[in-house]
Write a protein that binds this DNA or RNA. Sequence first.
DNA 1: ATGAAAGCGCTAACAG
DNA 2: CTGTTAGCGCTTTCAT
Lengths: 352, 352
Amino acid sequence: MAAHQDPAQRVRRPPTILDVASQAGVSKSTVSNVVRGLPGVSDATRRRVRTAIEQLGYRPNVLARQLVQQRTSILGVVVGDLANPFFAEMAKSVERHAAARGYTAMFCNTEGDSQSELAGVETLLEYRVAGIVFLAFSGESRTMQETLEHQVPVVFLSCKADWGDVVSVDDVRGGRLGTSHLITAGHRRIAYISIPELEDQSDIARWQGYCEALEQARIEPPIRISWSPPSDHALVSGVDRKLLEVFTGPDRATAAFGSNDVAAISLQEFADRVKLRVPQDLSIVGFDDVPMAGLARIGLTTVAQPRDELAKLGIATIADRIERKLKGPPRTTLVGVSLVTRQSTGPPPEGL
Amino acid sequence: MAAHQDPAQRVRRPPTILDVASQAGVSKSTVSNVVRGLPGVSDATRRRVRTAIEQLGYRPNVLARQLVQQRTSILGVVVGDLANPFFAEMAKSVERHAAARGYTAMFCNTEGDSQSELAGVETLLEYRVAGIVFLAFSGESRTMQETLEHQVPVVFLSCKADWGDVVSVDDVRGGRLGTSHLITAGHRRIAYISIPELEDQSDIARWQGYCEALEQARIEPPIRISWSPPSDHALVSGVDRKLLEVFTGPDRATAAFGSNDVAAISLQEFADRVKLRVPQDLSIVGFDDVPMAGLARIGLTTVAQPRDELAKLGIATIADRIERKLKGPPRTTLVGVSLVTRQSTGPPPEGL
DNA sequence: ATGAAAGCGCTAACAG
DNA sequence: CTGTTAGCGCTTTCAT
């Protein structure tokens, strides 16, 4: 292999279209025509240009192109938490489908914080992204305004808002599905548990589904736990309590519905640590069906989302919107959820 | 909330610096100066410009700026597999540290395929990224050339190559560490197992460390398993065999060292399915210490990488290189690995 | 079939 | 302190 030089020393700037033009002895328009594969260039010229491009290692400057074209092929993707396996999987799918449609994805991790969500969108807008895909949306209205004001198509993928296109599972239905499963198994005291960092619009919809299921079964009251693992305290229906208390004592909760798999698995981990047996003492249902949930050792019952289908539809929607193939008012596309039953759920203990 | 219009119909293009200038009754340079916070603008003018910006919702066009400045603040990040929790965590850290230093991250998922690795780098180069961070590198030399030819600083983060800056753990040492742990526990037949999609330079170094440890303990021969879960077949030292065979029979392997936690956990899952007890029948060591490995139910003994420290150093390195604060030949920064002992390892069965 | 010229929105000298 | 001017690299009419 050729001796390599110190990266800091090589200062040769990338060749421009002009370099190619002069090298090939043509005008830059011709080079442009060749690069873009337009017809109306003689074969001889085309060949000469191709050679020059090869020799110089010319690569068109996308920034310049997009500046003059007044549009970019960058898709901004707002992710709640890349470290959450669900988002990681979605991000991966989104990137793949975006690339397949000619878009480059630019990710923004928000840590579920509406502050950085706003900052992220701001950055994306500065890059004049062609559209924004929200993989999580806090619901913060200022972000919405910023985005609206600047005419960027937006799709809420696996999350929702009352403006912009939505492609997601029916979270309310998913919430009902998971909760009903527990009710059917005989549980009467069922808690809903979420991790505050990830409480967004989806979380709210799932909570609603949970409440509806309880109501329909005439079970009162709903119990909302907001917990930051691995703390042993949590906000239980608004008041700070020891988490363990919720699952012990005479009218303890015998089951919990996690707003997502990470919350559910964290709770299972907590249960393991404090020697609560799952599902004998405590049944747990999650949401998402992340790969980890399917491991024999985890065996989490969960509401599954068809991730790749969601990503595909979401990208199709926003791409169509960008390309003006889709017009009219915001559209909502709901795809089905399904319950995956594993070992984390069972009937409640005797007498409860 | 104001009635929202159909996203497809609002055609107002984003305001430019000229719009702001005329609105404020100044020249565009003055606006530019205000936007960039340069001194030498009277307070009155500054205020007027600020107001105009506010009213118009002006947002500078980064593409135009970067075009004229001849440099971007985009950092390309090549990721092996976003769905692998290790990469997901790294990606997240990288994005955070990049943002802290004023860079925007643009991710490329390669699925461990050197073909799309090349395509990804190609795309990044078209965007004139300021630098490229490899979170996985296949070792494919053409990519290297493409990159070198275009003068982009490169850092190999938690992976390696013999050119460009490297910031990683000492994979060879890590390989030795994990293997030695098994040897010390009494194992004599230890397999090395990796998932082909992720075999890269790090994998090779870890394999080398594994071999060295075996050699030092005068254990022969090394066993290399290349496995695509959940298949029940695998390539064992080059030949296709049933995976189970490796861990049963008279001279079976009693331990396995996974090239990363995903491989190790997959193997554990396999063991669970075929009723091999871990660690009684089979000890398993992983590499990375992903969050999942620490769950009580997984309890994977593994070689831990300090992810956030790696990301921080990696970004610092490439940022310094970009900003010319770091000059000279490629630098290698190695950070320490440590073994985290959990429940997946123990002594071999009696008599083996 | 090819070239010339006019910008895209912005920064960076340089004048005034 | 503020305005004028000349591009950055590219696409896109419009001539030739």
